[in-house]
Nucleic acid binder design. Structure first.
Length: 548
DNA sequence: CACTTTTGCGCC
DNA sequence: AGGGCGCAAAAGTG
């Protein structure tokens, strides 16, 4: 991702559905509807498109059959730069700076509901672009920040492309699953037959006629009347109990969740034709991970994955990174012992072979506990051993936790800064009264757990961004002709996992792209240390066959 | 009544 | 006294 030497073309919206295009060769204005027709000619010199929000500009271009090679997303980049410890915030001040700060994400699933502030609607992209370039150039970490902004922007392109393309989805398979488990589709507002039958069974077993199992207080009271000692009705709590009602109740909960979250209405809303179109929000979470604002891309349950089926003659290539976060920790802490363990397919087994702990299960729970800040239980017990063997890695997350407890900002490998966690409020309750020392200390520790995890989760997100940025380019180069969806293309991304939809005969080449992109990501994010990021890759017809 | 918060579950 | 999310329904609030 060469950061410089690429011509930049700034796009701004003008009143009257027109756009201004400012490039090295001058400036022109045209109707917004004609932009797609001019993209190829403007992009001939390999320009980078500079615009306020990829989610706003790119979907109509994709609809018009245009793929954009590279962009700079000013909104996402500004969010990074304003929070980056290595950036002088003053350099981001100036005309309309406050408006740029207020610029919210376009919600892909909805058109703009209310008239936005006219000044926000017609911000000048060129002005903000020059500010950001200057702020990066003046930073002591210009190189890493350029990489981060390029990867973030490429991710925004990939997100729009995935929503546009959609996951190949068989309505027929999905509805068969629903029918088998729930019965026929009920009228709106009614329970499916299977849920109603289970509800009746529970009413009998708990001797509570009229019980509504969806009401937690009702359910809890009925369970307590039946002699069970519990204070909540979570599945994990129920599983510890012995009573004839437990099995049907757990089944009720599972099916009820399927019905309401991924049932017929979900299909109607998010499946168009034979594609599922969830909406992604790049950097939607504070650590830089993506979130989803429509379609539930973060939790497509195993139960319905059989419905994700490749087109005839095509396949799904599913890949996930094995133990991304511990590997990232090895890289950023430069812990040679942990880096050694990370050099191979099974990091947890390597920790055992290292003599740090006795079993793979202990290695896993101990390492995850270290990343999340567990202090007690099985994982907390492993910490001293891990600390002895991997002092630099464990020291890094410990330092991050201590910094958070002192209300200091921490940063990822590429320079994304954590937000300040309302430290002003630590001394007070939510109602504004002075908090007691215990509550205060609890909030400090809580924020420490956040910053501890932030550095690792955030750097993991950066590695993954570089991975998909490289991947979308190499898949495009892999060839084929015509539109994006006529070639091998990304259809799904979730934290450390991707799905590519590709003609079956290209499966091997796609697999190679995935592996090479992972190697590129590793050397981009960790240029000075060699860490392996092994992938589990499977080539399948249906997503459900790719067991994790 | 509309609105916000809480609960509990899904995913990593 | 273990991190990050979204979602739907129930429960709580004005």
């Amino acid at each position: 991702m060469p950061p410089s030497g690429v011509p930049r073309v700034a796009l701004s919206r003008l009143p009257g559905e027109r756009v201004r295009v400012v490039g090295a060769d001058g400036e022109r204005e045209l109707p917004a509807s004609e932009l797609a027709a001019h993209v190829a000619e403007i992009e001939q010199d390999g320009a980078r498109w500079v615009w306020d929000d990829t989610a706003r500009w790119y979907p109509p271009l994709l609809e018009a059959g245009v793929r954009v090679a590279r962009c700079h997303d000013l909104r996402l980049s500004r969010r990074i730069l304003t929070r980056a410890p290595a950036v002088d915030r003053d350099l981001l001040e100036g005309d309309d700076a406050d408006l740029w700060d207020r610029l919210g994400p376009a919600v892909a699933a909805l058109p703009t509901l209310f008239p936005v502030d006219d000044r926000i609607e017609h911000l000048d992209a060129g002005v903000e672009d020059r500010r950001q370039l200057a702020a990066v150039a003046a930073s002591s970490e210009a190189g890493r920040l350029r990489l981060l902004l390029a990867a973030e922007s490429a991710g925004a392109l990939a997100a729009a492309e995935m929503t546009h393309a959609g996951i190949p989805w068989s309505r027929e398979v999905h509805e068969r699953i629903l029918d088998e488990q729930l019965g026929p589709r009920p009228p709106r507002g009614a329970r499916p037959a299977e849920l109603e039958a289970l509800a009746n069974e529970l009413r009998e077993l708990l001797r509570t006629p009229g019980l509504n199992p969806d009401s937690r207080p009702e359910l809890l009271a009925a369970l307590q009347r039946s002699g069970l000692t519990l204070t909540d009705v979570r599945a994990s709590t129920l599983r510890r109990q012995t009573h004839p009602c437990i099995e049907p109740l757990l089944r009720y909960k599972r099916l009820s969740h399927l019905f309401s979250n991924n049932g017929w209405e979900w299909i109607d809303q998010w499946v168009r034709g034979d594609r599922l179109h969830p909406a992604y929000q790049p950097a939607g979470s504070s650590t830089g991970r993506w979130s989803s604002n429509g379609g539930g891309a973060l939790s497509i349950p195993m139960q319905v994955r059989p419905a994700a089926v490749a087109d005839e003659g095509w396949c799904l290539v599913v890949a996930d990174v094995a133990q991304l976060e511990p590997r990232v920790l090895a890289g950023m802490s430069n812990d040679h012992a942990l880096a050694g363990a990370a050099r191979g397919a099974d990091l947890y087994q390597a920790i055992v072979d290292d003599g740090a702990v006795a079993s793979r299960a202990e290695a896993k729970v101990g390492m995850l506990g270290a990343l999340y800040g567990a202090t007690t239980g099985d994982s907390g017990r492993m910490l001293p051993a891990l600390m002895r063997r991997y002092p630099r890695a464990m020291g890094l997350v410990e330092d991050a936790a201590r910094a958070g407890e002192r209300a200091q900002v921490v940063r990822t490998q590429l320079g994304r800064g954590s937000t300040i966690g309302g430290a002003d409020d630590w001394g007070h309750t939510d109602e504004g009264a002075p908090a007691d020392p215990d509550a205060q200390a609890s909030r400090r520790r809580s924020w420490g757990r956040f910053t501890r995890n932030f550095v690792v989760q955030g750097t993991g997100a950066e590695w993954a961004l570089c991975w998909i940025a490289e991947l979308r380019n190499s898949l495009w180069r892999l060839g084929g002709q015509g539109a994006l969806t006529a070639r091998p293309h990304l259809v799904f991304f979730l934290h450390d996992e991707v799905v590519v939809h590709a003609p079956s005969e290209l499966a091997d080449k796609v697999t190679a792209c995935l592996t090479e992109a992972a190697a590129s990501a590793a050397s981009l994010v960790f240029p000075d240390v060699s860490i392996d990021f092994p992938l589990n890759v499977t080539v399948v017809r249906s997503y459900a066959e790719a067991g994790k």
